[in-house]
């Protein structure tokens, strides 16, 4: 009975609310996108004007931990995808969202391990431009991940009493989460792999 009611509530979301939040979220993501685009532009400039990269005799860090981070964030996005699909059908998939949160948190842990590893190899924030890029860009991305995780936790609480805004919120939060995944992928390929 409770399930059917919840399903009803979710399915009732207004067309207008959906349009408004997707317009707003798309504009917001363009803003966030410009922030990361500016960072990537700076990186491209450093990269292409340096005769050798990484500069000043530095070595690239091992790909192991960044690859694990990439794996985790892709998994978390996939988990969220299935959660979104079920919500659209009117089902409350609390485990799916919990999975995303756990995978997202593990991504943060892998980032912390990565920063520690850099430090133990004697690469500090102030060790030249490559270290600056690695630290600062991952910091800025991680700060966004923390905000997004807080959003997901808040959404998790909201799922206990679904209303007609729930599916709108799920799709908005999803847009942000997938966006951060894409940003990480771009950073992983350009900064760590290439």
């Amino acid at each position: 009975m409770a399930l059917a009611e919840a399903r009803n509530n979710i399915m009732q979301s207004k067309e207008g609310d959906k349009v408004i939040s997707s317009v707003a979220m798309v504009v917001a993501l363009i803003s966030f996108g410009m922030l990361f685009l500016t960072l990537m532009m700076s990186f491209a400039l450093y990269r292409f004007t340096a005769p050798v990269w990484p500069p000043a005799g530095m070595e690239k860090p091992s790909l192991l931990i960044p690859s694990i981070s990439t794996f985790l964030i892709i998994l978390s996005s996939l988990a969220y995808f299935s959660f979104e699909k079920k919500t659209a059908k009117g089902l409350i998939d609390k485990q799916g969202l919990m999975m995303t949160i756990i995978l997202g948190t593990s991504f943060m842990v892998s980032q912390a391990i990565f920063w520690n590893q850099l430090k133990s190899h004697g690469i500090f924030v102030s060790s030249g431009i490559f270290a600056s890029v690695m630290y600062a860009f991952t910091w800025i991305h991680a700060a966004h991940i923390v905000v997004a995780l807080a959003l997901l936790v808040w959404l998790y609480k909201k799922l206990s009493s679904p209303d007609k805004m729930t599916s709108v919120m799920v799709s908005s939060a999803g847009k942000f989460w997938h966006f951060l995944g894409i940003v990480w992928l771009i950073m992983f390929v350009t900064i760590f792999v290439l």
């Binding site: 410009m34 960072l39 450093y46 004007t49 000043a56 924030v125 102030s126 030249g128 600056s132």
Partner: peptide, 29 residues
Amino acid sequence: AGLLLLTFDRVFGTTFFLAGAAATSGSGD
């Protein structure tokens, strides 16, 4: 983004906007 990088330069010692030849000193632009 520019202000964040400038703040990092000032507070954490990154080298985004420090002058110098990137190849030798590894500084920014």
